[in-house]
Design a protein around this nucleic acid. Sequence first.
RNA 1: GGGCCGGUAGCUUAGUCAGGCAGAGCGAUGGACUCUUAAUCCAUCGGCCGAGGGUUCAAAUCCCUUCCGGCUCGCCA
Length: 534
Amino acid sequence: MKHNMADMKHWADVIADDAGIINKEHLVATGITPSGHIHIGNMREVVTADVAFRALLDRKTNAELIYIADTFDPLRKVYPFLDESYAEHVGKPLSEIPCPCGNCKNYAEHFLKPFLEAMEHLGIRPTVYRADELYKNGKYVEAIKIALTKRDEIATILHEVSGKPPASDWSPFNPICQECGKINAAHVTGFDLDAETVDYTCECGNSGIVPMKGGGKLTWRVDWAARWKILGVTVEPFGKDHASRGGSYDTGKRIVREIFGYEPPHPIVYEWIMLGQKGAMSSSTGVVVSISDMLKVVPPEVLRYLIIRTKPEKHIKFDPGQPLLSLVDQYERLNVNPDAGEYELRVLELSHAKGLCQTDIPFKHMTTVYQVADGDFDRIMSIVKRAGYDTTNEKCIRELADNVGNWLEMYAPPFAKFSVKDKLPEQTETLSDEQKAFLGALSQILEDSGELSGEDYHNLVYTAKTEGSTLHIAMARILGVDEEEVQVDPKTMFGAIYTALLGQTSGPKAGWFLSSLEKDLLVQRFREASTYSP
RNA sequence: GGGCCGGUAGCUUAGUCAGGCAGAGCGAUGGACUCUUAAUCCAUCGGCCGAGGGUUCAAAUCCCUUCCGGCUCGCCA
């Protein structure tokens, strides 16, 4: 049976169909530990989850998307971006540690906030849970009781699946020491199911009793399985790290079935996003692109497209240099392609999101507009308005302009860059007499004419080669020869324009480029260039 | 070392589950539009489908072996 693009099914639809057979109601879960600056792989995770979620909604299933922040995990070490004062907090739950900037509720929130904003940016709006709140609200109490009671069975599963026996004093529950505040140093010595408390002895020398409600957490592998049951998770994407044999999904699968009596969620294993070859501009030491860096240069819908068009198990190579331009191009072309196939339309549909900023201005076009306007937003707006673009959604245009501005500054290859020079560039000396005559004639004509559109400018330049045209006659007069002796190749005339304005022989599409500049500037600059001698 | 995932045109890749002429986009090259170089359109070039073996009338696809790359596995994301 041969397959073609027409009957290809998008991976999200494959997942939704697979998962959909089992249940009518779905809970798509995603989560990360906000222990530091949020990693690029997490971006893929949430987009993947969002797409699966939307594919399920399209099947008229009752689906919900949730995001769990693992705020109750311990701080593992003093990360390079933290100062030494954090040494005393190592081992404490992230939610109980002060924020590095002093403005957030706690350490976890500090890193969570920009990530939640990034999700908003991408049109992803899950119900957000914080692990510390789930524990403190008592959502985990039943699971903790079961886990403590079936401690030996869980240990056996961990042993069988991962191949390593847990230590003899291992417990599925990690109490928070009331003395030192650490969640990874206390050992369980007993528990009371009726009082819902756990007894512990801590490495710090303290021993005591904590409530099951908020007094500690289940260890990761047990926590994950318990969470599926507690929240009713049916679909969950996760990175390769959890997917390997004997890894946490393997153990979680058995723990949730055998201990908690619940079917594990449909897994979506995804690969990481790799950084492509960076240009010479970036520092040679391994550059890590954070989510915020990525969102600085890529419009959100393009970032969604990047992830959505690729199956989760494939690496994504992301190169913010020139290849980014092709990516954006491809997306924009698809976006307006009337012949797009069913599969492509599906990709497009999933890349769009409610509340996502959209303008009809192409990214590449904005790189030119931005540079013509020298980054000034008012000028950008007036240029795009004059070019006939929809300017009602100013916020989105500003977002695009910011993306483009950052891209030009951080990643753009030299060929994409130009600037309208303040003064006549010295390269003007390379112009031929004919080119100078052309500029002089053009200057005169512009001075005598009213406002011209891009097309007017364009056509005007082409009249230079036509005998009898005002431009052609003026050129002959300046050169002091008969009209029929003047042979004009429009290409070199365009070159003269770019040289006089940019100091380089090529540039953006000339017609509208000229129309986006002040006419007075053109008149003066071209006159100056026509009489230039070094 | 064990495991998972990848390897298809210069680049990014579809197709692998379910064997049936290996497809697209970008780039390159050539051309058209009396109107562009970074606009649009048309055409062309470009492939030992990582390698080797096996099954089959038929293999990118299934089986075995192997090479390359990424990730992962020390109970902790």
